[in-house]
Simulated assay, not measured.
Amino acid sequence: MAIAMALTIVAGFSLQAATGRSTFGAPPLVHLHAFIFFGWVVLFVSQNFLVTRGSIALHRRLGWVGAGWASAMVGVGIYTTVAMTRNATTPFFFLPAYFLVMNILSVLCFGSLVIVAISMRKRTEWHRRFMFCAMAILTGPAFGRLLPMPLLVPYAEWGVFAAVMMWPLIAIVADHRRRGYVHPALWWGTATIILMQISMTLMAHSVIGLKLYAVSTAGYRGAAIAPLAFPTPPSSPLITGR
């Protein structure tokens, strides 16, 4: 499953590059974001590989590297999202306010699940399932590049959510077939993802979400963009991070 998730992410962003919607000419912040997030993908697959090889000691040492790495992901992820919102370069198939809230809550939920997983590192069955659910959240942006998002407006975010939910559902079925019951960690992780999605929608349309958008874009181009109206599709490919 770790490999399947990694391949999904690689496929999504490779398609982005192949279609000209992503370029190495993107701002340095986008390159930093890509390096940190893809670095996590490599680390996640490596950690799973080490466990299958029985290299538990090295797995645990790298786990602390992962803890610091995940913290950097949360910070860089939020900063990059705010920068894109300020520059009015949010994807046109998302409401600008929703995009801002979506990405912030996504990385915060990812970070929270990683923290819980690390705190339960001595309870392997809980630890690995929480890490699995955290990784599932990170596949959202990849599905956002693989799915025909413009055709899904105004329900594009729900298309991504449905795709992300594929991972915990597969795990739930596998758990039930293997054990005869579903481990509680999977229920908690799945509930977190569902609650995250509901919170995104509610918050983006709330006073809090609109205030967050106003504060984030004050003095920038994004302030002139209606937070709850779909932007006009660009006449040329939208280069990520511009």
Rank of each mutant, 00 (worst) to 15 (best):
I194T: 00
T85Y: 00
I78G: 03
L105E: 10
Y181D: 14
F110C: 10
T89Y: 02
A174R: 12
I104A: 12
V173W: 12
L146T: 06
R179S: 11
R128D: 08
S112W: 12
R123G: 00
I115C: 12
F94M: 15
P91V: 00
N87R: 13
F93M: 12
K122L: 13
F93S: 09
M165E: 12
S106W: 11
M131C: 08
P168A: 08
E125D: 13
A174E: 14
V173G: 04
V107Y: 04
G111K: 02
L105S: 09
A162W: 05
G75S: 11
M120K: 15
P96G: 11
V101Y: 09
F93L: 09
V182P: 05
V116M: 13
H183A: 05
L151M: 13
R179W: 08
F161L: 06
G75W: 05
R178K: 14
R145C: 01
A162S: 14
I170Q: 11
N103W: 10
T139S: 14
R179L: 15
I118P: 05
I137E: 04
P168M: 10
F99I: 03
A136R: 02
D175W: 10
L195V: 15
G77I: 03
A142L: 08
V153K: 08
P96I: 12
V76T: 03
V173H: 04
A171K: 10
A72M: 14
I172A: 15
Y98T: 15
F99W: 13
D175C: 07
L100M: 14
Y155E: 13
T80C: 03
V107W: 03
G159Q: 09
A163G: 10
I78F: 06
P154F: 10
L146E: 08
M73S: 04
T85M: 04
P168I: 07
H127Y: 00
L113F: 04
R128Y: 08
T124V: 14
P96Q: 13
V182H: 05
R145L: 00
L195Q: 05
I78H: 03
I170H: 09
N87P: 07
L147C: 07
R86Y: 00
S106A: 15
W69C: 01
V182W: 01
A163R: 06
G75K: 03
G180S: 07
F92R: 01
S106P: 06
V153E: 09
M84T: 01
L169W: 14
I193C: 02
L186N: 07
I118H: 10
A185T: 04
F143T: 06
P150M: 07
P148W: 11
A134L: 02
A156P: 09
